[in-house]
């Protein structure tokens, strides 16, 4: 089985963000970067499929400047077999333009299953996987929390708000991975050594047309400082009074 995983390099979300002077990006100074959480789950799921089959190949693909090779290398050290950087140096905020480049790379390479994270934790758009599938004319199941691939059929479960769905579709297909399936493994020392010898292809990204512009980024309004009502259960009556009279939520 031939699998592809699209991964994105994102800043560590624990960081404190500052808006860059341009107003349309974040100031990257001092920030740590890593694979987006859900993309890590997707890579893990793909690697586990090949481990279980004892066969198959996982290709990881990332779009961006040369620093994304670091993120690709991490996926290789987890156990992916080969990597492709779709080189593009300038920042792009248009998800459809990016998905177009990813789809161009994925097309006609015989992938049985293409995996993405449910969303990138920085841009939070939740659309890349569905975009890619639609552009390639493939079936897609998004935001799945369980996956079973057998006999050429994908069976999956998606969590909804207060409900869930069971979904199936034939291979080849695209899936996007939610919480609950797998956590990304920590690369072993052996994995890190092996990753150095794995192939890393670099090709120019063929971005699609830009459909929207990022005008600016802003920090949301800070929450006003709150107060400690009191200690222990004795503070409960005063809290209830405040919720009723001041916050008016009771």
């Amino acid at each position: 089985m031939k699998l592809a995983v699209c991964i994105k390099r994102v800043p560590d979300m624990e960081g404190r963000f500052k808006i860059a002077a341009s107003g349309t990006g974040i100031d990257e100074a001092g920030l740590k970067f890593d694979m987006s959480d859900f993309d890590g789950y997707a890579a893990e799921v793909a690697i586990q499929i090949t481990e279980k089959l004892g066969a198959g190949e996982v290709t990881v693909i990332s779009l961006g400047p040369d620093v994304v090779q670091e993120t690709l290398r991490k996926a290789l050290s987890m156990g992916a077999h080969r990597a492709v950087q779709l080189k593009h140096d300038a920042p792009v905020s248009d998800g459809l333009a990016i998905a177009t480049a990813l789809a161009a790379e994925l097309k006609d390479r015989g992938y049985d299953l293409i995996l993405c994270g449910r969303m990138a934790v920085d841009t939070q758009n939740r659309s890349t996987g569905a975009f890619i599938a639609e552009l390639l004319g493939l079936p897609v199941i998004t935001a799945i929390s369980q996956l079973n691939v057998e006999g050429g059929v994908v069976r999956a479960r998606r969590e909804l708000e207060g409900a869930y769905e069971l979904i199936e579709c034939p291979l080849p297909a695209v899936v996007t991975i939610d919480e609950g399936i797998a956590r990304a493994r920590y690369p072993s020392l052996k994995g890190i050594m092996a990753a150095k010898k794995k192939p890393m292809d670099v090709r120019p990204a063929q971005l699609g047309a830009i459909t929207y512009q990022l005008e600016k980024m802003e920090l949301p309004a800070e929450r006003a400082a709150g107060r400690i009502v009191g200690e222990g259960k004795d503070a409960v009556p005063e809290l209830v009074r405040l919720l009723k009279e001041e916050a008016k939520v009771l």
Partner: peptide
């Protein structure tokens, strides 16, 4: 809202 709701991105759609 993006970046775990720490940044608001303003877009114009063409």
């Amino acid at each position: 809202p993006g970046y775990t709701n720490k940044i608001v991105q303003r877009f114009v759609l063409n």
